[in-house]
Simulated scan of single mutants.
Amino acid sequence: MSRLLQGAQFVLAAHRISQLPADQGAEVAFAGRSNAGKSSALNALTNHKGLARTSKTPGRTQQMVAFSLPPPVQVDGQPPLDVRLIDLPGYGYAKVPMEMRDHWKLEIDAYLHQRRSLRGLVLIVDIRHPLKEFDRMMLEFCFATQLPCHVLLTKADKLSRGAATQALAALRKGFASNSPHATAQIFSSSAGTGVDEAREAVMTLLRTPREGAHPNHER
């Protein structure tokens, strides 16, 4: 199933949620601070080095970017399911104008609250640093709305194996009481650490309907 991610294709870049593809089928969103390695993670998961733009200058993802995936095999005569990945704007980079940051904040909030086809969130966090305010806000939102969340602790190759394991254990300990719908793993796009595990996690989110989802959005 995870091979479906390797068929990802760019669809469009949207400045507002109203410009995104039709709100049907299933999609997983990727969120994270703009220097956490989100674009590199997307490229590694899809095995497509040029899918998401990467740059030495953080904050280049300034729109919501939609990528289509090949539809998974359906059973019982059901039509193929529209499946997508959504790359949300990187958040928290100081050089981005305040007006643009405010716009992103409003649009991301609207997307998370209104998008019915959203089945889960992949949160990109730099393993070398404690959770930032944005990271905590996203986790709290997922907890409050029962939105499944999978955290990629990126840039794990920058730490020793022992230090990376300790960071993962500390995060999971916090999940036990605060974020029961969240999971986490160690990840490195450059070293290939955890790529297969992350692919399976994304596919699990895509193929698992959310509790209370309207049936019209599950076709």
Rank of each mutant, 00 (worst) to 15 (best):
F67P: 10
L118W: 06
M137T: 11
S189H: 06
L121K: 10
H129D: 07
A144P: 00
H217G: 06
G77M: 07
A13P: 05
V122W: 06
D196L: 11
R116W: 00
H103W: 12
K132M: 14
I186G: 00
P72G: 09
S34F: 06
Q24M: 04
L81N: 06
L121D: 10
Q63N: 13
K38C: 09
R84A: 05
R210C: 10
P215V: 07
Q9D: 13
A213L: 06
D82M: 05
G162L: 09
G174V: 00
K95L: 07
S2R: 15
P130G: 09
L85H: 11
E197P: 00
D135I: 02
S190T: 15
A164T: 06
F30Y: 13
D23C: 02
L206R: 10
F187E: 03
M138W: 04
R119I: 02
Y91H: 12
Q6I: 01
K56L: 05
G7C: 09
P79V: 02
A41D: 08
S39W: 08
V75Y: 13
P79E: 12
A213C: 10
A167D: 03
M203E: 12
R115P: 08
L5H: 13
T145S: 11
E133Q: 14
V195K: 05
T165H: 13
S68A: 15
V28C: 12
K132C: 03
L69Q: 11
A22W: 01
A184Y: 07
R119A: 05
S39N: 10
N35M: 04
L85E: 12
D76P: 00
G77T: 07
R207N: 11
Q24H: 05
F30P: 09
R116A: 11
A184E: 04
S34T: 05
L131D: 05
S68V: 01
R136P: 00
D23E: 06
H129K: 14
R3E: 15
I108G: 02
Q24E: 14
P215T: 03
T165D: 15
P180S: 02
A44E: 10
G32S: 10
R115G: 07
G192M: 08
G25Y: 08
M203G: 04
H129I: 01
A14E: 09
A213W: 03
L139S: 03
R210A: 09
S55Q: 06
G92R: 04
A31Y: 06
T54P: 10
I17Y: 01
Y91N: 01
S68L: 02
H103A: 08
Q166D: 14
S189W: 04
Q166F: 03
A29T: 09
F67W: 14
A176P: 00
H113R: 14
G174P: 02
S40T: 14
E99A: 15
L168P: 08
V65P: 05
H113V: 01
R116Y: 00
S190L: 15
L159K: 08
T165W: 03
F67R: 05
L69H: 12
A170R: 15
T154H: 10
